[in-house]
């Protein structure tokens, strides 16, 4: 019995239970997000936050149950590279959005028009 159990594990600590749990939870979160979005169940702002939250939860579920990030032993190099990636991604995505919305905010329609005219005059 014990022998069978150890054989059912892959080297990364995966078991049938972990895959089934991850699969079921992912389906649940996907369907919830779908129904909320299609029925437009909440006000826009709340809905965006809830959908983002559901995506993040599903991200963590798949990381743990499919990629087995939590089963790593010390030193946790994979986790460190992962956290570094998250940091770069945050800077990249939110930095871009911040800068671009700021540029957008500072550019009035008149400025855009005169810029477009100067471009077409060339």
């Amino acid at each position: 019995m014990i022998r069978k159990n150890t054989q059912d594990r892959t080297r990364s600590g995966a078991t049938l239970r972990s895959y089934v749990t991850g699969f079921a939870l992912s389906i649940y979160f996907t369907l919830t997000a779908y129904l909320l979005a299609v029925r437009h169940a909440l006000f826009n702002r709340t809905l965006v936050l809830v959908l983002a939250g559901l995506a993040l939860v599903q991200f963590v579920v798949q990381l743990l149950f499919f990629l087995h990030l939590g089963t790593e032993t010390k030193p946790r190099w994979k986790l460190m590279v992962f956290l570094f990636m998250i940091m770069v991604v945050m800077v990249l995505v939110f930095g871009s959005l911040w800068i671009m919305s700021n540029l957008n905010y500072r550019m009035t329609p008149d400025q855009i028009n005169s810029y477009m005219n100067s471009q077409s005059a060339l």
């Binding site: 054989q7 059912d8 594990r9 892959t10 080297r11 995966a14 078991t15 049938l16 895959y19 991850g22 699969f23 798949q62 499919f66």
Partner: peptide
């Protein structure tokens, strides 16, 4: 993605 995981479990056996 799930069936890919099942393939890995089968490989471990």
């Amino acid at each position: 993605s799930f069936t890919c995981g099942l393939a890995m479990l089968a490989a471990a056996r």
